[in-house]
C-alpha cells in the first residue's frame, strides 16, 4: 500500500495533504483523532460496488422488481453505514509517541506509539505509515485499554531524526471506504553515524601513550568489577563474583593506568570527509568499548576525557552524532 490516496490523482492528494498539514496541531506528544481531521473517500472497491448497485437499480426499475429495489437499497444502506463505521474506526483514537532509542545511521528508528481510547469501541486494522516507509497495522480491541506499536523509520543521516508526519488510515470494516488522517507528533531519535565497515588501523603516533584499540587484551592490569552491560565479552565475566552476588558482573581492566587511548580527529587523514571520519571514530569507540579499554575522544569542539562504560560510550557517540549541529 502506498501513501497515495485512493482514487485521487497525485496532485490532488498532495494538495489535500498540504491543506491538512496547516490544520495539524504541532509540538504535542499526544493526539486524539476527531472528525475535524479525519478524511474519508470511497476506495476502488467501493466504486465497483456502486457500479454494480447502479446496474441492479436499473434492472429493478426496468422489471419493476420490488425485491431488486429492496436489495439495492439494503446494499446502499450498508455502504452508508460502513462509511460511518470506517470513520468511527479512527474517530477518538488517541496516539502518543515516545522518543525512539538511538540507532546507527541506516538502521530503522523504532518510534513507539501508544494507542489509547476515549471510547469503548473496537479499533481494528488501523495502519500507520510514514512516507516511503513500511506500513504497520494495529488493533485496539475494546477489551484492551491501550496497545503499543513500533513504527520503523529508516534513518538516512546522523543527528536528530524527528518523527515524520504519519498517515493513519483504515479501510475496516468493509473495505469500501478509506478513512485517513495525518498526525505530527513530537518524537525524535538520535542517529549515530554508521560505524565504518573497514576502519583504518588505529594509529599510535601522536598518542601520548596507548595501544591500538584492537590490541588491548585481557592480560592487562585488573581494574575492578562492575555490573554486566550488554556487549561485554563472556571472557570477562567475573564468575567468582557472579557466584557470590548472584548478579551478572564483568571484570574490567586497564592497560596501565596511564595507558589511555585517545581517539582523535587529527589521527585521520584530511583526505577523508567529515562523515567518513565520524564513521571511523564511531567504529573505534565501539571496538574500544567492547574491549573495555579506557578511551577518550577529541574532536573539534568537543573533548571527552578518558573513561569506560556504557554512559561514557553514549556520551561519545552522541557527540559524534551531533557533530557540526548547533544544539
Amino acid at each position: 500500500m502506498t501513501t497515495q490516496l485512493p482514487l485521487l490523482p497525485g496532485f490532488m492528494a498532495r494538495g489535500i495533504e498540504r491543506w491538512a498539514a496547516q490544520r495539524l496541531p504541532k509540538n504535542t506528544d499526544k493526539i486524539c483523532l476527531d472528525r475535524r481531521r479525519i478524511y474519508i473517500l470511497p476506495t476502488r472497491n467501493g466504486m465497483i460496488f456502486s457500479l454494480v448497485l447502479l446496474v441492479i437499480l436499473a434492472g429493478a426499475i426496468n422489471y419493476q422488481n420490488s425485491m431488486g429495489y429492496l436489495l439495492t437499497f439494503l446494499t446502499l444502506a450498508i455502504m452508508l453505514l460502513a462509511m460511518i463505521a470506517t470513520h468511527q474506526n479512527l474517530n477518538r483514537l488517541c496516539i502518543t509517541a515516545v522518543n525512539a532509542q538511538s540507532v546507527f545511521n541506516g538502521q530503522a528508528a523504532k518510534f513507539s506509539l501508544t494507542l489509547s481510547r476515549v471510547t469503548q469501541r473496537d479499533y481494528i486494522n488501523i495502519s500507520f505509515q510514514c512516507p516511503e516507509q513500511t506500513r504497520v497495522a494495529a488493533h485496539l480491541p475494546a477489551t484492551q485499554n491501550n496497545t503499543h506499536i513500533d513504527l520503523p523509520v529508516m534513518t538516512t543521516q546522523r543527528g536528530y531524526c524527528a518523527l515524520p508526519r504519519i498517515r493513519v488510515f483504515t479501510e475496516f470494516p468493509l473495505g469500501l471506504f478509506h478513512a485517513w488522517s495525518w498526525i505530527e507528533l513530537q518524537g525524535r531519535c538520535l542517529v549515530y553515524p554508521a560505524p565504518a565497515e573497514h576502519p583504518p588501523e588505529f594509529d599510535r603516533r601522536g598518542q601520548q601513550s596507548g595501544k591500538h584499540a584492537s590490541e588491548l587484551s585481557g592480560e592487562d592490569e585488573f581494574a575492578g568489577i562492575r555490573t554486566y552491560q550488554t556487549g561485554d565479552s563472556p571472557k570477562r565475566m567475573a564468575w567468582k563474583s557472579i557466584a557470590r552476588s548472584g548478579t551478572w558482573q564483568t571484570k574490567t581492566f586497564h592497560a596501565d593506568s596511564d595507558e589511555e587511548i585517545w581517539l582523535s580527529w587529527q589521527q585521520l587523514s584530511d583526505t577523508l570527509g567529515i562523515e567518513q571520519r565520524l564513521s571511523i571514530l564511531c567504529r573505534w569507540i565501539l571496538d574500544a568499548h567492547r574491549h573495555g579499554s579506557k578511551y577518550g575522544m577529541d574532536i573539534p569542539g568537543t573533548r571527552i576525557e578518558p573513561g569506560i562504560g556504557q554512559l561514557h560510550q553514549q556520551q561519545c557517540l552522541r557527540a559524534l552524532a551531533l557533530f557540526g549541529f548547533s544544539r
Binding site: A77, I78, L81, N125, S127, F172, L174
Partner: peptide
Amino acid sequence: HQGDAALDLRWRLQAAVKLVALSIPLM
C-alpha cells in the same frame, strides 16, 4: 479487511448482523 486482527467468528457475525439490521430502516 480485518488484516491480522484474527477476529473470532462470533465477533464478525455480530458485527455483520448489526450492520445489516441497522440498514433495514434506511432500506
